[in-house]
Design a protein around this nucleic acid. Sequence first.
RNA 1: CGAAGUAUAGCUCAGCGGUAGAGUAAUCGCUUGAUAAGCGAUUGGUCAUUAGUUCAAAUCUAAUUACUUCGACCA
Length: 920
Amino acid sequence: MDYKETLLLPTTDFAMRGNLTQNEPIRYASWYTNKIYDKMKTARKGAPSFTLHDGPPYANGHTHIGHALNKVLKDIIVKHNYFNGKSVRFTPGWDCHGLPIEQQVEKKLGGKQKKELLETAKIRELCRAHAAEFVDIQRDEFKKLGILADWENPYVTMDYKFEANIYRTLCGVAKKGLLIERSKPVFWSWAERTALAEAEVEYEDKESHSIFIAFELSDEAKIKLGILTKAALVIWTTTPWTIPANTGISLNPNEEYVLTTTGYIVAKELLNSLKEQHVLGGDVAKTFQATDFENMLAVNPLNERTSRIVLGEHVLIDNGTGCVHTAPGHGEDDYRVGLVYDLEVVMPVDETGCFDETVVGLGLIPHAETFVGKHIFKSNDEIIELMGESVLKVSKFTHSYPHCWRSHTPLIFRATKQWFISVDEKPLGEDKTLREIALSEVEKTLFVPESGRKRLTSMVANRPDWCISRQRDWGVPIAFFRVKATGEVLLDEKVLNFTAMIFEMHGSDVWYSMPIEELLYAGSGYKADELEKVTDILDVWFDSGSTWNAVLKSRNYDAGAYQADLYVEGSDQHRGWFQSSLFLSAAVEHKAPYKGVLTHGFTVDEKGEKMSKSKGNVVAPESVLKEYGSEILRLWVASSDYQSDLKISDGILKQTAENYRKLRNTFRFLMANINDLESLVPHAEMGELDQWIVGVAKKVFDDTHKAFSNYNFVHGMSLLNNFIVNELSGIYLDITKDRLYCDGANDKHRRASQSAMAIITKSMLLLIAPILTYTADEIIDNAPAIIKGDAKNIFDLTYAPIEAGESSFNAEYMNEAREGFYEIVDKLKKEKIIKSTLELVLHTESKIALDMNTTEAEDWFVVSGIFEDKPQEEILGTFKVNEDTFVISKATKAKCPRCWKYHSENEDSTCQRCSEVLSA
RNA sequence: CGAAGUAUAGCUCAGCGGUAGAGUAAUCGCUUGAUAAGCGAUUGGUCAUUAGUUCAAAUCUAAUUACUUCGACCA
């Protein structure tokens, strides 16, 4: 007789294989059509809230694996909070303005010349369309990852209302008195008449002058230094045309400088080299520290203007003279040191690269009138000539020099009027500066990992004023009116409010298309023809830095609360979004926009190297979805340590897929085993092993849950995985098979073990639901009522910790016994002495083993008996636990044909238990 | 060049002063009543390198190397 039919074998419709690549898109589509995100909001109405504020990716190009990591991580965190009963919001966003899009559009148009033929308004229209296209593309790509968010109402920084709110944030900063206008040098192409970005600069060879010039110390300085002779600092430069704009000379604060017998001052280190070059002669007359010269004055030999001696770490002593010509209007380092010493920014060059009236007004060059309108590069020789004997040496040489990438003409550094947010001013009504507010807010913020705090702190502490203006087309305009006559900017609140209102209705593009009179409200009292528009746009960091205001504080989105609970971005955003958001929020609201900041590393290949097309190690999200499915990608995110860089490769994904199968199959087996369970057996009535596994599960799930709540998913997943492999699947699910399959359906042992499994299944299901949401939802589709209740899908459920009572089971001892037993069993099997452990019985003096319920103890070892007396049969092996000996021998009874335990009187008849079950 | 982070078995990660751990992969075996599954056993590491502190270092300190990120018209 075949007894298989009389057993209660596991049954379920939940497939062993997920077939994820096929099935995920179907389920995801149903989530979106059934508006699951909205239902999640309804389900947690009135519950405590959790706001994760999404940082906007740039709406250009397809998403890569780094985007996928970022959004999946956010999704896991949001869902973890949701499944723990919180009311969650996740409004995704996109950054839409900025140069890269402008450049893409330019490329499509076929070059800058063609672009310049178009009106700014038309260019902006094309940029807008480009960004909109990629918002759609990226949104679809994110949705394929199973991310639940308000995809219908994302925030898009080019939306009219959004642009208006960026502008309002700017006005808010201005209202606090933190907005200032100041000159700052930028890369400038005089041929193209435009500022350039670093990426638009190419280095090419150029022939330049090499010129040494002596700046005589002022008489006052000489007196202070006790110098009676001629004494001139010698500077070296390759750009004679910047000498008119000289306002300082920089020395290295850590160097010694010498006065020569011939009356020149240079760095001691460089004296010999300068003598060899025949720049100057003589010997050391006197030695000084650089600091001796600080704030003293020298005289510019070209125009007799004074030049302040300052100290700067940027001064190198590997060439030149150690005395660096400093013109804050024409150099980045010069500008910075100039800020420290408050040097005057002189900038007498117009946008075409010619000297302007300034040279006359300030008397920068003798006979200045002849230089007005003259190109700077054509003025070099004349300027050198005008300095006469102060020029110690002139030569020419070829070096690598920045050039414009389009016109291939040499660039210059040119100071232009820019808008800054002053970091060291106090916002109106506050007694701390913006920087101090930001720093104290960083202290209050939660950082994951903690090292982010230090990183952000040092960046906030050291950053200069924030230059927020850009000379570009595609951005939110710094929409201020300037009075033509005075240059003064109108910050009239009513004017600003009206502009914001117009932007809200028509978008900020109208700044370019509408005439001034229409941009002013009726009855403003200002005359349009006396005003001009500021045409600069805002740095895109200002856009994203405003999202706390435009998204969380405005009522335009259902996006959660300001301050957000958490910001989650890559570690590069310490200098980006975390900082721009912090400063704007601190400026206007005097607090950080976030309570917590979580950063993750970058995705790299298996060797830890960054992905690049040329290396061929790029893992595209699309190919992962096609090969493995989004669940595998999500599990990869959860099982990787995101605090440092995340390695991904095909091999790593294969391993992740294996782990997924283990998880999936464990759930399948659990469900299959409890499919006929209708009510739970109380904990006190469970067997020792059931109580034990429930207790272990409780501990593990509590720890896992805690790890997840601390955003430590790697650790949680590893705890969970260990439990599943070792205790649950490895032991408990194996040793309870006899009672589940062979006992009567309603046998108490069977029902108790099923109850333990049901308790574990439900808790574990909700634990992994934030990560493997697709799978959890599929499980609910196939789950018995004892798990499912009246839930329609996984989103109807909430995680609850296991409530476990006492367990008397001595797990440590019994585990050791089990290991000792299986070592011997392995040998017996390899020697073909036995095929199954059920052929064996144990004899022991162990109180712990003997005190257990006999069936429970047999099942623990999967043997057919445990006895106190000595074996009659041949001893097959012995092992010890502590001082207790266990002896293994063959069972004396016959194999029951139904349950395979050696409990029968003969091989043809079933054992007593099975006989009873069969006759019932 | 400067700042920050990371480095433990082929892979993913624990351990963070007291004799190197788990899972996975690999190898071998059992099982066909979880079966494109399950169970067991075995192999595998100078804890990046070097030098210190200490009775004792994977763990603390310093330097070095490799990789990654950041270093303002660029998201």
